[in-house]
Amino acid sequence: MEKLSNLITLVGILMASPAQATSLHDAISNNDFKGFKAILASEKDKLLELRDELGRTPLLYSTQLNRVEMAKILIENGADVNARDAKHDTPYLYAGAEGKNEILAMTLEKGADLKSTNRYGGTALIPAAEKGHLETVKMLLKTKINVNHINRLGWTALLEAVILSDGGETHQKIIQELIKGGADVNIADKEGVTPLQHAQRRNYTKIVEILKAAGAR
């Protein structure tokens, strides 16, 4: 299924008209709202899923630049919130990973695939937790996303919130949210090291306390 999805993405990139893709992407890049609407109105059905040289649809590009109003118009007109680029990102996955919460909310309302994964095999929740996007984590935990999903590195969102953080207050809160959301505090990494052991090795005293209180070993 993944190979078929990649093939469809490649075909979409090859079929895109470079001039059309460039004009719409340029309007997004320049935050030219008037031009954006004019271009989209001319041939909406042909333009929504056109790709640039990196395989990004207008919606994904709008998401990356946090052009909220442009993203809203594209989504309202039927843009695919799960369309992948050459890096395996989608508007939904990118919004989640980078804390673009306004756009994330719109993708969730329009059928975001909660089981979809990025190039590291992680759901949107994992990078959101790692990068310290507390409100994003809260939003995602209100969905049916798998809080204990393990990526190709062998890490859950909880493990990444420990291993790749500074142990500060934001990540402490994220870890608490993950635990409230059902995170298994004893899922270890590929080497058998648990979140508690990682926190102890880094002298993250507060996180150690949080994990122990939740039954971590």
Score class of each variant (00 low, 15 high):
1 M>A: 10
1 M>E: 12
7 L>K: 15
7 L>T: 13
8 I>W: 04
16 A>R: 05
16 A>D: 06
16 A>E: 04
17 S>C: 14
19 A>R: 14
28 I>R: 01
29 S>M: 09
29 S>P: 01
33 F>T: 14
39 I>L: 13
40 L>G: 00
44 K>G: 01
44 K>D: 03
45 D>N: 13
49 E>K: 00
51 R>G: 08
51 R>N: 11
52 D>P: 10
52 D>Y: 00
53 E>L: 02
53 E>C: 04
53 E>F: 12
56 R>L: 12
56 R>N: 15
63 T>V: 10
66 N>L: 09
66 N>Y: 08
67 R>Q: 14
69 E>A: 11
70 M>D: 08
75 I>S: 09
77 N>F: 03
77 N>T: 02
78 G>R: 00
79 A>I: 05
79 A>S: 08
80 D>A: 09
83 A>C: 03
86 A>M: 12
86 A>R: 13
86 A>I: 14
88 H>L: 15
88 H>M: 13
91 P>G: 08
95 A>G: 06
96 G>A: 03
97 A>Y: 08
97 A>N: 04
97 A>V: 11
100 K>V: 13
101 N>K: 10
101 N>M: 10
106 M>Q: 13
106 M>T: 12
107 T>I: 05
108 L>H: 08
109 E>M: 10
110 K>H: 10
110 K>D: 01
111 G>V: 13
115 K>V: 14
116 S>V: 13
117 T>G: 00
118 N>F: 00
118 N>A: 04
118 N>Q: 07
119 R>Y: 07
120 Y>K: 04
120 Y>C: 12
123 T>A: 05
123 T>K: 08
124 A>G: 04
127 P>I: 01
129 A>L: 07
130 E>A: 15
130 E>C: 04
131 K>L: 15
132 G>I: 15
134 L>V: 08
137 V>T: 08
137 V>A: 03
137 V>M: 05
139 M>K: 10
143 T>I: 10
143 T>Y: 06
143 T>P: 02
144 K>L: 08
145 I>V: 12
145 I>S: 02
148 N>T: 02
148 N>K: 04
151 N>F: 09
152 R>F: 14
153 L>R: 11
153 L>Y: 10
154 G>V: 03
154 G>L: 00
158 L>H: 04
162 V>K: 05
162 V>E: 01
163 I>M: 03
163 I>K: 05
164 L>Q: 11
164 L>Y: 09
165 S>C: 01
171 H>P: 06
173 K>P: 00
175 I>C: 04
175 I>A: 03
176 Q>F: 06
176 Q>L: 12
177 E>C: 09
178 L>T: 07
180 K>L: 14
180 K>C: 11
182 G>I: 02
183 A>Q: 00
187 I>S: 01
187 I>W: 04
191 E>M: 12
191 E>K: 13
192 G>H: 01
194 T>H: 02
194 T>D: 09
194 T>M: 08
195 P>S: 02
197 Q>V: 09
197 Q>H: 06
200 Q>N: 07
202 R>M: 12
204 Y>F: 14
204 Y>M: 11
205 T>K: 14
209 E>K: 11
212 K>L: 13
213 A>P: 03
214 A>L: 09
216 A>M: 08
